[in-house]
Computed example of a mutant assay.
Amino acid sequence: MMRTEGDSWDIVTSVGLTALGVATFRALETIDPEPMIHDDYAAWFVEAAGEPHFTQMLDDPASVGKMRRFGRFMGVRTRFFDEFFAAAWQQGVRQAVILASGLDARAYRLDWPAGTVVFEIDQPRVLEFKDRVLAEHGAVAKADRRVVAVDLRDDWPAALTAAGLDPERPTAWSAEGLLPFLPGSAHDALFERIDALSSPGSSVATDDFGRGLDPQRFADTEEKFFGSNPFGNLDVSDLWYDDARAVPGDWLARQGWSVHSTTPVDLAAGYAQPITDMPAELLDLMQQARYVSAEKRR
């Protein structure tokens, strides 16, 4: 399943299926005896989509086996972005933009301060599925949630401002699990547009494999460490782009943002949930990956 220019997807195909997989592992992490995160909405999406590989995981968590390790990585990632938004609102930020929001339920499960607006950007069919499931369960957002159905390869700033984003006010931006799925040109334009739409006091967080992103190496290491492909028959690396692109942390620093970077291994240790029994190949790959947060200086 290779990418093509202008391709689109729903929740059980292509990039949409990866969002469903992430929701599955968030659901599994939630029912872990020592969960790193709580996402009671994730299971709703998996059940509604009815994709056999993922529904089997939720029906029989014991069958997950070594793939449970992948759920711990998703727990680390989810907690990083949860804490990023919490830090932003503690600084008085009341606008948040979740880029490629997929099945992210943060507008519902985080305790946003009164007056916060949360914008979610993603493909139209993904958002349609998500909204239908949430409505069926009577879910109520804890913020002013506004969906923006637009492809991130297109003119999403126009759609976002039309939905009410105020570039004169600080904004917290997240790009979670997104960057490898963008061509280099769209990847670099993403950060240029974030910078242009951000007033001083804004912040951004992303996860980035950077120069360590080798799709084949990732696939081989994934099979060895997790025992099988966490995404079933979908080879996620087929959906990635590995063309030239800027390093997000370096680019943001050059634009005057204050940048902090850490690895998923160090994050897990900091959460008192160290990832152990890791083969050298995966440890090396994870040490090259980065979780990046940055604040635009005043």
Rank of each mutant, 00 (worst) to 15 (best):
R3F: 05
E5H: 09
I11R: 09
V12P: 01
L20G: 03
G21Y: 00
A23H: 03
F25I: 00
L28H: 01
T30V: 14
I31K: 06
I37C: 02
E47F: 02
A48R: 07
G50F: 11
G50M: 10
D60A: 12
A62H: 13
V64T: 13
K66L: 13
T78V: 11
F81K: 02
A87E: 15
A87S: 15
Q90S: 15
A100E: 10
L103Y: 04
A107L: 09
F119G: 03
I121S: 09
D122H: 01
Q123H: 09
V126G: 08
E128Y: 09
E136Q: 13
G138D: 11
A141D: 07
K142H: 09
R146M: 10
V148S: 07
W156Q: 00
P157C: 09
L165D: 14
E168R: 12
T171Y: 00
A172S: 12
W173C: 02
L179H: 07
P180M: 11
F181I: 05
F181S: 08
L182V: 08
P183D: 04
S198M: 01
D207L: 11
Q216M: 13
K224Q: 11
G227M: 01
P230Y: 02
G232K: 13
N233G: 10
W257S: 01
H260D: 14
P264H: 12
P264C: 12
A269Q: 03
Y271I: 06
P274N: 08
D277F: 00
P279S: 14
A280E: 15
A280R: 15
R297V: 12
R298P: 15
